[in-house]
């Protein structure tokens, strides 16, 4: 299979960046997208050229490290799939593929396709946790959590933090990421206690990191590898309003 690649190359944060064209001849259908990039890099390095820098690690769709815009779509054309799980069988012989980094002010490009997503960590730092120290925990079965609560908390907790929601959003909003964490913890009795202060802190942090607002286009859920529900965003809004109205310091 022959593939024509147009890959975004950018030396560093300040560099303007540009597309570079590459042609690969022996791509096979069973290759993953990242293995195709490996193949390209192997070729480039042997010519003494700089390899295309891209983020990747586990290659089984769970670490959230990989993520590029493939033909203008975060993680490529398959819905609810990470870049590493995308295989070349989704492309045709002779296809031209545009590969760009995730783009948002909150995700500055480090080099080529690598971006800095520490802004997402900062949101968690601001309050995305349960305040419990090691050793303080009571016996696990003391507080029953119903099957439904646990399952719906899990649905939200499954977020892998890849940032595709931000990259897919026309407003570059991190509402799905933040909403997922708020919902995960608000659904469980262990996390529910701190919901008000957590939500206010995390929402404010989103703003400080330069993420945009949510206009409920629901594109994020479609591209989210874990299919996190957009209703988590509504939950965040609810918890925020509730906190603003009812929370006493």
């Amino acid at each position: 299979m022959k593939i024509i690649l147009k890959i975004w190359r950018q030396k560093n944060r300040q560099d303007k960046g540009e597309f570079c064209d590459y042609v690969l001849e022996d791509v096979t259908r069973d290759m993953s997208f990242l293995e195709m990039l490996d193949m390209l890099n192997n070729k480039l390095v042997k010519q003494g050229d700089r390899a295309v820098e891209f983020d990747h690690d586990c290659r089984e769709g769970i670490c959230g490290q990989c993520g590029v815009m493939i033909n203008g779509i975060a993680h490529g054309s398959l819905k609810n799939t990470t870049t590493c799980q995308l295989h070349m069988r989704e492309f045709k012989d002779g296809d031209t593929i545009y590969v760009e980094p995730f783009k948002a002010s909150a995700f500055p490009v480090v080099r080529d396709l690598k971006v800095d997503r520490s802004s997402l960590d900062h949101i968690i730092v601001s309050g995305g946790y349960v305040s419990v120290d090691t050793g303080q925990a009571p016996e696990a079965n003391n507080i029953p959590v119903t099957y439904e609560e646990a399952e719906s908390a899990f649905d939200a907790a499954a977020c892998i933090g890849c940032g595709a929601c931000v990259a897919s959003c026309k407003n570059s909003s991190a509402a799905l990421f933040t909403g997922a964490k708020i919902t995960h913890l608000a659904r469980l009795p262990q996390g529910e206690k701190e919901t008000a202060s957590r939500t206010m802190a995390m929402v404010d942090q989103m703003e400080q990191e330069n993420f945009g607002h949510c206009s409920n286009t629901e594109a994020c859920q479609v591209e989210c590898p874990e299919n996190i529900s957009v209703l988590t965003i509504a939950r965040m809004n609810y918890e925020y309003n509730r906190a603003k109205i009812l929370f006493k310091k």
Binding site: K6, W8, F19, M69, N71, G72, I73, A74, K79, Y98, E100, K103, A104, S105, A106, A167, S168, C169, K170, N171, S172, S173, N210, F211, G212, H213, T217, E218, A219, C220, V222, E223
Partner: peptide, 20 residues
């Protein structure tokens, strides 16, 4: 705010496929 949050946008942008 949106413009500011977007920064430089993608040259090839097909994000629209996921929403109305």
């Amino acid at each position: 705010k949106r413009k500011k949050a977007n920064g430089v946008s993608c040259s090839k942008d097909k994000r629209g496929r996921a929403s109305t």
